[in-house]
């Protein structure tokens, strides 16, 4: 393409890719316009802030899931890491604030660091197991899902944990800046950072190379094992962060928090065009599809459509998305 003119084949491929990558933003636009006509409350300031906050949790987790999926892996344990992080944050924070009632800020900081550290180490274990045993990521993270879920329930006996300082639950959890909640800003910053890293940092580009063609990446000297471990570690760290944010929001630590994220994060990533075969995925698209899924749920709530039907809509959307996105087929190819 030295002349700067695309060959017909390349042109149709470009068209295909641009249709695939613009379908979700387009759907989001249509949905938003439709909803604001059908229901004036949709475009109210509080509802938009609400949507963006709810989408932030999903977007943060799904962008972690995306990193793992770019490598051709999958992380089923994100949901239970959210729970473990929530439980750890609340237990450590409530114990410490009983000990030192006057050091709320220090208490909050220490608890969050411990929760994040624990979540990150779960990811490290996932990454090490996947990188060194070469077992399927599905089965390895299924094991982690079972173990970590058991731990979160065992240490709480399934009972919610209260007693965190108000500085955490009220000032941090319910605070807003310019009308938007803190998680929205955190998610935006993280998505921006990941999107930039994917484009401009070696580490981001190497992830694509490993996921696109592992043997070639290994032959060209890329640290495949290190990248694998890094992706799983980051994924769990992001899930742990969401655990902390959600705990601040609801004001208690719960062992069943976030169980829906396992399937939702994979769904959001797939909707964003992330390939299960690896090698493809953009953080900004994951953010858009997270917002889209949240708007669908929000719109159905506003229009008083039975919440039980939402799962059916989610399923149909997934099928539709994968049909539109031909790169994502990834099924058995016969011809």
């Amino acid at each position: 393409m030295r002349e700067g003119v695309l060959q017909p084949a390349a042109y149709s491929r470009l068209l295909q890719v641009s249709i695939a990558t613009s379908i979700v933003p387009l759907l989001l636009l249509v949905l938003a316009v439709g909803l604001s006509i059908a229901e004036p409350r949709f475009f109210s300031e509080t509802n938009i802030a609400n949507i963006l906050r709810n989408a932030s949790y999903l977007a943060i987790i799904s962008s972690g899931q995306m990193l793992v999926m770019i490598l051709g892996g999958i992380d089923l344990s994100v949901g239970v890491v959210v729970a473990l992080s929530s439980v750890t944050t609340s237990i450590v924070m409530s114990r410490l604030s009983a000990l030192w009632p006057d050091h709320a800020t220090l208490t909050i900081l220490i608890s969050c660091v411990i929760a994040l550290g624990l979540s990150t180490s779960i990811g490290l274990i996932n990454g090490l197991l996947v990188a060194y045993t070469k077992a399927s990521a599905f089965m390895i993270t299924l094991g982690t899902l079972t173990v970590v879920g058991g731990i979160a329930f065992y240490i709480t006996s399934g009972i919610p944990i209260y007693g965190m300082p108000e500085g955490f639950t009220r000032e941090f959890g319910r605070a807003s800046l310019l009308g938007l909640s803190y998680p929205t800003y955190i998610a935006a910053a993280l998505i921006l950072a990941i999107a930039l890293a994917q484009r401009h940092l070696n580490i981001g580009r190497h992830l694509y190379a490993v996921g696109g063609h592992g043997p070639a990446a290994r032959a060209s000297g890329l640290p495949v094992k290190k990248l694998t471990i890094m992706a799983y570690t980051l994924c769990s760290a992001l899930a742990g962060l969401v655990g902390i944010l959600l705990t601040a929001r609801i004001g208690s630590g719960q062992a069943n928090l976030g169980s829906e994220f396992m399937l939702q994060s994979i769904g959001a990533a797939v909707l964003a065009g992330v390939s299960l075969r690896g090698g493809i995925g953009r953080a900004e698209m994951v953010a858009v599809s997270s917002i889209f899924l949240t708007v669908v749920a929000n719109g159905m709530n506003l229009l008083r459509i039975d919440s039980k039907l939402q799962t059916i809509v989610f399923g149909v959307l997934l099928l539709f998305a994968i049909l539109m996105d031909r790169r994502n087929r990834g099924g058995p190819s016969y011809d």
Binding site: K308, I312, F314, G315, I322, R329, G330, G331, S333
Partner: peptide, 20 residues
């Protein structure tokens, strides 16, 4: 089989539809 879609996503979709 017919549309050669990834079984993971197809059955994830039917999972949600059946649950609904």
């Amino acid at each position: 089989a017919r549309w050669q879609l990834n079984p993971f996503i197809v059955t994830l979709a039917t999972l949600n539809i059946c649950m609904g």
